[in-house]
Simulated assay, not measured.
Amino acid sequence: MLDIAGELDRWARQGRDFAVATVVAVGGSAPRGPGAALAVDGHGTAVGSVSGGCVEAAVYDLCVQALQDGEPVRERFGYSDEDAFAVGLTCGGVVDVLVTPVRVDAPDRAVVEAALAAAAGGGAAALARVVAGPVGRLGRALLVRPDGSYEGGLGGLPGLDRAAAAEARALLDAGRTGEFHVAQTGERCGAGGPDGLTVFVESSVPPPRMIVFGAVDFAAALVRTGKFLGYHVTVCDARPVFATRERFPEADEVVVDWPHRYLRGTGTDGRTVLCVLTHDAKFDVPLLETALRLPVAYVGAMGSRRTHEDRDRRLRETGLSERELARLRSPIGLDLGARTPEETALSIAAEIVAARGGGTGVPLTGAHTPIHHDPDERGTGVVLPHAAKGNSRQSFAS
């Protein structure tokens, strides 16, 4: 739901009734991951997508029905030889979809509105909803904020909401979307217990950072690519004549400072990517010495193989360990045969996406690697067991 928060926040502020279908579990080669959503308002207007097209019509109808009867429902869509092109996923995957009506008179309307407002405004918040459990609990919602405070409720004992808020906050701190299982008393439990609940959490966090060091032509192209991928992009260079807003109008920030000094003083986290394009030892070595000791997602450095060998020798002299040096991606980017700044930026972006998503970077043609990597293999989502594949549509008891 939060992936289309901007439009839904506008609908909510206009007082519209709407229903939201959210992917809450996937298996196999599903086209979109947990958290993907499609919403339909009372006029039949639709926004978003849960499958890239193959089951949109069926999900649309479920939203319309939920708006009419006010009841949430969970449905499974998967591959079926009989009706693959009717309502099935022809890619062979399985998706579970939770359809929740958000009518003006809905008991959780205020909670959903607050979550949408936070996400649309770029704030951090987690929306936890019951996706499986006792009758009457399906769709119940809890909004959890970064400080651990929460509003709403899952309809159980007080300990349930406290426990759910703690679990959701942990996912929010990691910027993850996922699920957990909890007993009505608030204790952790395994999936499928008769009195347990499965809670799905969507996290909304500010965009991850991309910091580009070196105000060069390649940096200008990488800024544009980084913005396209959804990063908050900063350009940093010690030379004021090159690090200007005129040269990098699309950057969120342009900083004039020594790269290593700026990196030591700025905020980074486990989603941050650092791209070092200066290929000048007096900038690179102190910068990379700092960067490779930070818990960031990606560190890449531009330069020829000879430059890399010299840089590697200098970095070893600073005392970096083999494990720290192994984190450096240098020469930066994938081998695409890139020549121009734009092609080089694409090469770097491709390596960042592969590193973030667990991809191999090899061509899909003729390969035996999965097209869509299971989110749980990289700790960013929930996956339906492969044994759950079956009929195209399957209702879940709620």
Rank of each mutant, 00 (worst) to 15 (best):
D195I: 01
L143K: 08
G178S: 15
R140G: 02
L157W: 01
G156K: 07
G152D: 07
G133M: 12
G139A: 06
V135W: 01
S204W: 05
R145M: 08
R137D: 02
R137W: 06
G190C: 01
T185G: 13
A163W: 00
G133F: 04
D161G: 11
V201M: 07
R145Q: 14
F180L: 13
G153F: 00
R162V: 08
A168D: 12
Y150C: 15
E187H: 14
G159N: 08
V135T: 15
G155N: 03
G192P: 10
V131I: 15
E151M: 12
H181Y: 12
V199S: 09
G178D: 15
L172Y: 06
L160F: 06
H181S: 15
L197I: 02
D161T: 08
S149P: 04
L142N: 12
G186K: 05
S203K: 08
R176M: 06
G186Y: 04
V182W: 03
A141Q: 10
R140I: 07
L138V: 09
L172Q: 03
S204K: 09
G136F: 01
G178W: 00
G196A: 15
D147M: 10
G139D: 03
Q184E: 12
F200M: 09
G186T: 08
Y150T: 04
A132S: 15
V201P: 04
G152Q: 09
L143P: 07
L143H: 06
L142H: 12
D147R: 01
L143M: 04
G159M: 07
S204C: 07
V135R: 14
L171A: 07
G152R: 05
E167V: 03
S149M: 01
F180H: 04
G190V: 02
E167W: 04
P158D: 06
A168S: 15
A170S: 13
G156A: 13
G153W: 02
A163V: 06
P146G: 11
D173I: 00
L154V: 04
A132P: 06
L154E: 09
P146L: 09
G153Q: 08
A170E: 14
G196H: 07
G139M: 08
G136P: 04
R137H: 14
A165H: 07
G148D: 13
V135C: 05
D147Q: 10
P134R: 14
G156F: 00
V135K: 13
L160S: 13
F200S: 11
A132K: 15
L197A: 06
P158N: 08
P146S: 08
G148M: 08
G156N: 01
R176H: 09
G175T: 05
R176S: 06
G192V: 04
G152F: 03
A165S: 10
A166N: 09
G139F: 03
Y150D: 12
A164F: 01
V182F: 01
G186W: 00
E151K: 01
R137A: 14
T198R: 15
G133C: 13
T198Y: 00
L138T: 08
R145S: 12
E151F: 00
P194D: 11
S203M: 05
G133Y: 10
L143G: 10
G148A: 12
A166F: 02
T185E: 13
L171G: 04
G156I: 05
G139S: 02
A163S: 14
